[in-house]
Design a binder for these strands. Structure first.
Lengths: 212, 212
DNA sequence: GATAGTTTCATACAACTGTTTGAATTGCAA
DNA sequence: TTGCAATTCAAACAGTTGTATGAAACTATC
């Protein structure tokens, strides 16, 4: 249908503008101007501004979550139902980091949008984030299979810390870059992933991780 | 002066309201109503809404930063100019965590305000945060004295990860609580500090930390 | 107790926001 | 072509926001 054209133009323009300028100072009028559609089109196609934002965020989250679970599944199948803890953690933090870090120039609107979403915490997105707990539980279960004699409480703290490091690196890569005067190479995504996985494995097991 | 009364009433009301409801949906009119002063008083005493927010944030930050540096200084003096890495890290993450975690009921408006400030990222605060790098460098220097044969790049990553864990625990304690179904005790502030310090020390040295 | 400076107040302002409306247009099926 | 639904459009709406104004009420000094 031709109507999809308008819908997609709005989604694409919104994602780009939010990625570039943040949620706070992008108005519907900015979006419709960029998408070259009428102001009323947003409410017609999405119901409200918040639903537009939510749809953007949900669709992007689904992609990341699917990738995470695929990696986890692959790792567990390769290990006969049990994956090494480093592999589980790599499946947890890898997709997001790969999506959101790396050289600025090649960062997609989608990636920058998700970075904004994690920095700015706007109402419609905040509500959705609360539903991601079910997703994390599957990683908790996998980690328990990987470390059968660990207490669950330590596993939860392990997930929490791993996500904290990944998240903060995405959120505030600028501060680390300034603080270290460029010493910390934020374009070396694979190196960062290994660093975070390494620390997380040590946090959980008290000893160094296997190399990737 | 009697004029200070109005100023302080505004500051106090603003802090309480921002702490309770966040920056997004507290207006100047809410603040002046709670402070029982005239609408124009905010612009008269602070210049603008943003300057009011900035003043609140700066004054609260100064308190935390001073406490951090006092702890660091004390630890270094006790160690003859060099503090154990665990003590440096405890000085870095302890004050914020003690201020912002612990049982809800006893959390002050100031603490909840700072939590909001870290979650919601509003423009006037974002600008100020960029100036905190000088403060962090003093911790980097102390860590270098503590671990003289470590590369600076690892020390920067250590600071980054330690702050990441502390910050995320404050930001998203709710998610961890839900995920772990209460298993992770977020009221045990000292326990959390030791957990974060422990992981950070391991991340830096590859071995377990000394007990507090 | 008059005066000058500070502080308060009610009110208006100007701009911007997301949303709604109802008519015009388009696309498609019969 | 006709009829009907889906879509687009310009315009207005209703509400909110932070800020400015100028007069009034204070306060302290001489």
């Amino acid at each position: 249908m031709a109507a999809d054209h308008t819908r997609n133009a709005i989604l694409q323009a919104a994602e780009r503008l939010y990625a570039e300028r943040g949620f706070a100072d992008v108005t519907l009028r900015d979006i419709v101007a960029a998408a070259d559609v009428n102001l009323a089109a947003v409410n017609y196609h999405f119901g409200s501004k918040d639903e537009l934002i939510a749809e953007l965020f949900v669709s992007r989250s689904l992609v990341t979550n699917r990738e995470r679970l695929n990696l986890l599944k692959a790792a567990e199948e390769a290990g006969g139902g049990r994956a090494g803890i480093d592999k589980v953690l790599r499946a947890l933090v890898g997709p997001t980091l790969r999506g959101c870090l790396g050289p600025d120039k090649q960062r997609s609107d989608a990636a920058r949008f998700m970075i904004r979403a994690s920095i700015e915490s706007v109402a419609p997105i905040r509500k959705i984030k609360n539903r991601e707990i079910g997703h994390l539980r599957r990683f908790a279960a996998a980690m328990q299979r990987s470390l059968p004699d660990h207490a669950m409480v330590d596993i939860y703290w392990g997930i929490h810390f791993a996500l904290a490091m990944a998240h903060q690196t995405i959120r505030d890569s600028e501060r680390l870059d300034k603080l270290s005067e460029g010493l910390c190479d934020l374009d070396d995504v694979q190196g960062i992933i290994e660093r975070i996985v390494g620390v997380s494995v040590m946090a959980l097991t008290g000893r160094a991780a296997a190399k990737a």
